[in-house]
Nucleic acid binder design. Structure first.
Lengths: 353, 353
DNA sequence: TTGTACGCGTTATCAC
DNA sequence: GTGATAACGCGTACAA
């Protein structure tokens, strides 16, 4: 086997073999312009024979676009995001767009390099889950005229198209549900990240408390150490919440309700409660967020706030596609899909007393 | 705001602005060749001022490589693959390589289009989880000289570099553990996909049976309907296993052991057992595969076969990188990492009788 | 140290 | 219907 650095065949190769010009070959392969059926077939046959594959870089260079989308996520092992990715991947593939994916791991520096990569490749659009550390990278992206839509989290100051979830409403619903089924006092478990989703959920809890005339002071907000900004590839997991729940639930009054920022946190609470001899939902009610694939099958089933991931992913791609296809840049919209409360065994109504 | 189709600045733009040649600018930006410090600074300043970003397509065209890797997976919502993606993304980013990702969803046609995309973009290497429907796409990829490594599943007939898990050994260990802790008879739950991982695990079970002198006939293999080949973006989930377990576990003798092909299947078994009034591990022992993030926190904790995902991902990228950096094409190796049995509450030793 | 010339593979605009 | 020719943005030889 010789080590000849053999470049793949080009349209020029085909042209020579069939005694034509590169130009003709180009049109034949692409079906545009006018070509005589005979030459067309001859060219196509030769192309197939050679195993010709068009060079995307060359095409991108002259066309100025690569038919590709940038997808920037924080952490793919978050079930929410992995499902989101699935939807987006499928939908953009259907439209013939390539997906260029990067994970930022809640790290601003990674975010910047992701933007850099998208700029270099002249992506046609970007779908972004921002870390919310700074708007700078995204301003840069938008300043370069790249259509961009935020998913799940808005930017800090800059206004940008957004499609997400009404976390505030979800937490509001969850809180009302816990209160009305007799759970009190409440404990809220959230990751210790300064992101809008966390803030929204806490706001929702407070609104519900106000509506039911409960004192916000009696609700403790517990921040769970996030492992996401370490240099680890650890997936989301319940460990920290489990440890914290052990401490918080030890001397808690019977009937306490727990609101968890995601279902992994809730699962940590489950385990801690079990080890402390507390039964769910009698001694402690638990409500999660996300309806992760495992949640319905826990014992008891986990009451959780379900987000319409599919709709969000679809909406994001659709918006980008419209913009790519020439829709005029309109003032940014913020669309927040309503989550729905999935009531299961973990918050069954308890008899008061 | 005028609709001038304004292309981004190029090195030529910079050159004109500073009164130099494109060539000089090129070297200044890239730090190669020799440039006078003065002009260098002037060029860099102008580049920054313009917000210049090199055009990756143009560079790729002349260099013949795009510094990108193709990653082909079946289903990103599988926790194993999402973690694998995390590792690979991080590691390739560290090496300055872009990741081009596609999901095949166990579908051969998607696989072909993924290969097509990689070929067009002239990716420098490919990391692949094959659907094992046909070798054709991968033969095409390899025939084009693209370094390629299979993860987790080998190809059908063609020999190709592989890094994976010794599923056979894992299932063997799990089976021995179940038998030796008094569980009998056994029921094996596997997805109804014709993939090597499933076959390997079943082989491992049989080997263990042989070693302990148990009759393979008494072990029932239950195939769980896979939702993966539908046109759905459903994540992995326990539903089908749950339904099937309801049927299979109804009249089962006390002490039955269940071996599940992944932890989601195991979770379905958990729920069915609970509803049937069977307690784990007294009435039925359960062993999973994958050690998904939730498994340690179930009640009881799920005994499961843990795969070294990190090692596998790292090994895959490293191998690709070596090949890209010019390592001579050697005969393919098959490296299978040993999984480790995580013994937890779901298979606690039961007193015989 | 800098400039000239050319090539990468493809598409587009014109002639013919 | 087909063929020159130029252009996309950048890198590499080589000459100045």
């Amino acid at each position: 086997m010789t080590l000849e650095e053999t470049r793949p065949p080009t349209i020029k190769t085909i042209a020579q073999n069939v005694g034509m010009t590169a130009n003709t070959v180009s049109r034949a392969l692409r079906g545009s312009g006018s070509i005589s059926p005979t030459t067309r077939d001859k060219i196509l046959a030769e192309a197939r024979r050679l195993g010709y594959v068009p060079n995307a870089a060359a095409r991108a260079l002259v066309l100025g676009s690569a038919n590709s989308l940038g997808l920037v996520m924080t952490n793919p092992s978050n079930p929410f995001y992995s499902e989101l990715f699935s939807v987006i991947e499928r939908r953009s593939r259907k439209d013939g767009y390539l997906l260029q994916l990067s994970a930022t791991e809640e790290n601003l520096q990674n975010e910047e390099s992701a933007v850099d990569a998208m700029l270099r490749w002249r992506v046609d659009g970007a779908i972004v889950v921002a870390t919310q550390g700074s708007d700078a990278p995204w301003q840069r992206l938008m300043a370069n005229g790249v259509p961009m839509i935020c998913v799940n989290r808005p930017l800090l100051e800059v206004d940008c198209e957004l499609v997400g979830i009404d976390y505030e409403q979800g937490a509001y619903d969850a809180t009302l549900h816990l209160l009305d089924s007799g759970h009190w006092p409440l404990v809220v478990f959230e990751e210790d990240l300064e992101i809008s989703t966390v803030h929204s959920r806490i706001a929702g809890v407070h609104r519900a408390l106000g509506v039911r005339g409960r004192a916000a002071e009696e609700v403790s907000i517990v921040r769970i150490e996030s492992l996401r900004d370490n240099d680890s590839t650890l997936p989301w997991q319940p460990q920290s919440a489990y440890e914290e729940a052990h401490r918080r639930l030890a001397g808690t009054p019977r009937g306490t309700g727990v609101i968890a920022g995601n279902d992994f946190l809730a699962l940590g609470v489950y385990r801690a409660a079990y080890e402390l001899g507390l039964s769910i939902p009698e001694d402690v009610g638990v409500c999660g967020q996300g309806d992760h694939p495992f949640s319905a099958f826990l014992t008891p089933g986990l009451t959780t706030v379900r987000s319409p991931v599919q709709d969000i992913g679809a909406a994001a791609v659709d918006w980008i596609m419209e913009r790519i296809r020439g829709a005029p840049p309109a003032p940014p919209t913020h669309r927040r899909f309503a989550p729905t409360l999935q009531v299961r065994g973990s918050t069954m109504a308890r008899s008061t007393g």
